[in-house]
């Protein structure tokens, strides 16, 4: 039996009076892709924010790699191997593609302030090594032609890809993707799906993916969790979900 890399246990989260998550539990198996689906406002993004410490749940626990998180902050989540992308692109607009992706490796850099100011020697070696790693990701995601472009000038689809690149640069064990294909055309979606599958296969990265396109979800996920009004209303393989009456009523019916 495979290990669970992530265990979300009876998590409840509310903002003032609004309950965003109600007693939600699910597991992510190592090296697997889990999709979270649900109508707008169901609490999907909030769930990701709980997983990487942006929001603190009022109740329940998050157990990552066997360790229960207490008062975890995003920094610690990043350090222990979680990277993510955002629903609304959150790139560093004033920086080039290359610098955005290099920033994703900041936790791996060791040179101190003085060494960075002097640059020659340790810092330069480090920069060059990380550059090599970043170039592999750039090749992998086929964004060589834009590496020096400021991200603000890129079209939406490419920005989403750069954001994925930045997350991958951290070499995460768990990758959280909040609607990575929203607003993309069919071709771009196919590319993105392939990238996610490749990352999962080549590096064994576990993935949680929020996605509205049921075709994509059915194609690439190993397991699906369905949220509605902050509650988990279904869980299973894509096949099971497709045939789950409650899910069809709550979500698939609406989506079609």
């Amino acid at each position: 039996m495979t290990e669970n890399i992530l265990n979300v246990n009876k998590v409840s989260l509310s903002f003032g009076g609004v309950a965003a998550l109600k007693n939600v539990s699910f597991q992510v198996e190592e090296h697997k892709i889990l999709a979270i689906i649900g109508p707008n406002g169901a609490g999907k993004s909030s769930l990701l924010n709980v997983v990487n410490g942006v929001y603190k749940p009022q109740k329940g626990q998050v157990i990552f790699k066997g360790k229960t998180w207490k008062n975890v902050v995003p920094y610690e989540a990043a350090r222990s191997g979680i990277a993510r992308t955002f629903q609304n692109i959150a790139l560093f607009k004033g920086m080039s593609v290359l610098d955005n992706i290099l920033t994703g490796r900041n936790l791996k850099m060791r040179a101190g302030l003085l060494s960075q100011a002097i640059y020659l020697g340790k810092c330069q070696r480090e920069e060059t090594n990380h550059r090599k790693a970043v170039e592999q990701i750039i090749d992998f995601l086929q964004i060589q032609h834009i590496r020096k472009t400021p991200v603000g000038r890129l079209p939406y689809g490419l920005q989403k890809r750069v954001e994925l690149a930045r997350a991958l640069a951290a070499e995460p064990e768990l990758l959280l993707l909040d609607e990575p294909m929203a607003g993309m055309n069919v071709e771009e979606k196919e590319d993105m799906s392939r990238f996610i599958l490749d990352v999962n296969e080549e590096y064994g990265t576990s993935v949680i993916l929020i996605e509205h396109d049921m075709g994509v979800v059915m194609d690439i996920s190993d397991k699906v969790v369905v949220l509605d009004y902050g509650k988990k209303i279904g869980e299973g393989t894509p096949e099971e979900i497709r045939n789950n009456q409650e899910v069809i009523d709550a979500y698939l019916g609406v989506a079609r």
């Binding site: 995003p74 920094y75 990043a78 959150a90 790139l91 560093f92 607009k93 004033g94 936790l107 997350a167």
Partner: peptide
Amino acid sequence: MAVRDMDVAAEVIG
């Protein structure tokens, strides 16, 4: 620059 451009994202990458 990351903190300048988007502090939430900066925090999330560590």
